[in-house]
């Protein structure tokens, strides 16, 4: 299912966060959404997930305007993977994953043994069958994120939306999660939009990248093309360069320390091209 943003302006009643966005994510590809803190990644994500309504423009999912779809229709088309947060009550891993079945059921029903069996199979396929009986709140951050990912797989939607899934995770778990996301995208022909902080993860796992900068989108294209040293230096306000490792992978490395308390726009490390501060 193709995701298309056209002329999208998002924000809150009294201020616009991002103006006039155009973006297209083709079927079966992974698009990374990058940008500094406060650049509007989360706000954009909440619009794509129809938690917020766009101020202008449209979010199109498989050719349909999101604004005209019911909550249930949206959930059947798109699964959202949140950052793992604390829950007030404790559920087992299986209980959490089986909730992915919600949009497939009527309001009055609850998942039976078949759905639980299915949830268990999904957990096995994500490699966390051993977490089925464990309590969610006693799991590590990495395990929780995998449970949430499994829940999205259970939801069985052609589009996957992930909100910084790697931000609390150690090196290995970051790779495990991203690898799993890539497997889902390419295996199930799912379209994935994912917000990330680490350009190296994006370079390694994503097909496309979009950079948010100064209340708009700097551009989007293939990750190699978008995540150039020049673009990243400009967006994050710190000089970085892209280097090729001996193994042939592209890595992003900082080239100098950022000055303390400088906002990206007035960065003196390497005066980047001018852009309005956010």
């Amino acid at each position: 299912m193709r995701l298309e943003l056209s002329g999208l302006t998002v924000g809150y009643r009294d201020h616009v966060v991002l103006r006039g966005l155009d973006l297209e994510v083709p079927v079966g590809s992974i698009c990374a959404l990058l940008g500094p803190n406060g650049s509007g990644k989360t706000t954009l994500l909440r619009n794509i997930n129809a938690i917020l309504k766009p101020l202008e423009g449209k979010v199109m999912l498989g050719g349909r305007d999101l604004g005209s779809m019911s909550r249930k229709e949206i959930a059947l088309a798109m699964a959202f993977v949140p950052q793992s947060t604390n829950l007030p009550f404790n559920y087992t891993g299986l209980d959490m994953v089986v909730m992915g079945k919600t949009p497939h059921m009527s309001v009055w029903s609850s998942p039976g043994p078949r759905a639980r069996e299915e949830a268990w199979e999904v957990m096995e396929s994500v490699g966390i069958g051993h977490l089925a009986e464990q309590y969610y709140m006693q799991m590590s951050a990495g395990e929780r994120q995998l449970v949430l990912l499994a829940r999205a797989v259970m939801q069985d939607a052609p589009m996957l939306l992930l909100d910084e899934p790697t931000s609390h995770l150690d090196l290995r778990n970051q790779l495990v999660i991203m690898n799993m996301v890539r497997r889902i995208a390419h295996g199930k022909k799912a379209t994935v939009l994912i917000t990330l902080h680490d350009p190296n993860l994006a370079l390694r796992y994503c097909d496309y990248a979009a950079l948010l900068y100064a209340g708009g989108i700097l551009g989007h294209g293939t990750t190699e093309e978008m995540l150039s040293g020049e673009n990243l230096s400009r967006v994050y306000g710190v000089e970085v360069s892209c280097e090729l490792t001996e193994g042939g992978s592209m890595v992003v490395v900082p080239a100098c320390e950022p000055p303390p308390h400088a906002s990206p726009a007035e960065d003196r490390c390497r005066a980047p091209s001018p852009g309005a501060p956010e």
């Binding site: 959202f80 829950l87 909730m99 919600t102 949009p103």
Partner: peptide, 13 residues
């Protein structure tokens, strides 16, 4: 109990 945004993401009105 997952919270409003997650519940909405799971298709709950």
């Amino acid at each position: 109990t997952m919270g409003d945004e997650e519940a909405m993401g799971l298709g709950v009105d």
